[in-house]
Amino acid sequence: MTQQAPTQTQRDSRDHSGAGPSLQATQEQRSHIAKVESTDPGTITIENLEAYYGNFRAVAPVTFTIPGRKVTAVIGPSGCGKSTFIRCLNRMHETVRGASSRGHVLLDGEDINGPKVDPVLIRRKIGMVFQKPNPFPTMSIYDNVASGLKLNGIKSGRPMNEIVEQALRQAALWDEVKDKLKQAGTALSGGQQQRLCIARALAVEPEVLLMDEPCSALDPIATLAIEDLIRQLAPDVTIVIVTHNMQQASRVSDMTAFFMMNEQRSGELVEYATTETIFTNPADKRTEDYVTGRFG
């Protein structure tokens, strides 16, 4: 019974918006997507971005603007393409065999999907933290944080030590690990490992930090620590966080994007607004059903 609920809801809302011309439906959806004017550094403008696995379209065209130096949450039920979407923002999506994307993603006005853009350089500007903490097991805590710096050709020595310390401080991990920097990163607890991965991503001073369900493998206390951290980081770096935890989205984010699977099983952006609007006064029936826990 619970399994049927989403489909039912989806169909209801479709009927509600009318089985008329598809253009009308598009306009109907567009009106639920907030226009954001942001000139802060780290602003991401997404234009008609779609993602494919082979011929299967995992994300239907998405257009919206993620404000710079703010936290934007991407929520939605499982399989709605939110992880795929976020992986398109630093061109990690295309590293999966057979995967491709279309459309434009502009970071401060520069298209990261441009023909002459090197994805390697893009990933140095747009960092990523994954679901499961993935520190490099053969490296010490220090070397884990320094690994991105070494890729950038920074030689070891005092400057590197300073950057590593700063990154660990930013990730609220410094006090816990300053006496054991030479120990293996994998010897830390799960929450510490995830903060280590955040420090590793921050060390290269990215414009944007993408977080793909960063707390899904963590206990509640470690989760709170990461959430605090996200709030602290927001003034310095744009954060886009995918989460299946609606409370988390409401706690940490300024803006929220709600994704859902459509009839073609592609993820589509249903609504995008300030987090307050999404959780208190959503424009779309489907958003309301989701955030009030009626499905998903």
């Binding site: 350089l121 990933r123 990523m128 950038n152 590793r200 991503a201």
Partner: peptide, 12 residues
């Protein structure tokens, strides 16, 4: 996850 961790840091 290991390979993606390094790729995401901007590794070739």
């Amino acid at each position: 996850a290991q390979k993606e961790g390094m790729l995401a840091l901007g590794a070739t």
